[in-house]
């Protein structure tokens, strides 16, 4: 699973480079998230703006990523594309996470 982590503004910004989080990558996603969230700032922002498709296994892996955080850490989400937002809405998981429209609002991207 292709995840990139950068620290900025006291936020651990984790960007998903892959376009799909489904049953074939869910376990790898959860494991990568554990590695990337064990270190760095306590506030973690998962940027899903490249992800166009998620299934219930992928959703479960995001929930698991939140549950496996060390005490004192929090996981927010950003950049949900339409089909990903649909899955969060229909399962009501959108009520569980703080969801930001755009990661750039919290962590300005470098210009150029």
């Amino acid at each position: 699973m292709n995840l990139h982590s950068t620290y900025d503004n006291d936020i651990n910004l984790i960007t998903v480079a892959d376009t799909r989080i489904d049953s074939s990558v869910a376990i790898g996603f959860k494991d990568s998230m554990r590695t990337l969230t064990d270190q760095g700032p306590d506030h973690i922002l998962l940027d899903l703006s490249n992800v166009v498709f998620i299934d219930s296994s992928g959703l479960g892996a995001i929930v698991a990523s939140m549950k496996q955080l060390k005490s004192g850490k929090r996981l927010d989400l950003a950049g949900l594309t339409p089909d990903v937002a649909k899955v969060f809405r229909l399962t009501r998981m959108e009520t569980v996470f703080d969801i930001h429209k755009d990661a750039a609002a919290l962590v300005p991207r470098p210009v150029g």
């Binding site: 929930v63 939140m66 549950k67 009520t95 569980v96």
Partner: peptide, 18 residues
């Protein structure tokens, strides 16, 4: 039920709902 502590949140069982 999602009105639970984070530890108790379900990680599956959403397939048929969807």
């Amino acid at each position: 039920d999602l009105e639970v502590t984070p530890d108790a949140l379900p990680e599956g069982g959403f397939g048929w709902l969807l």
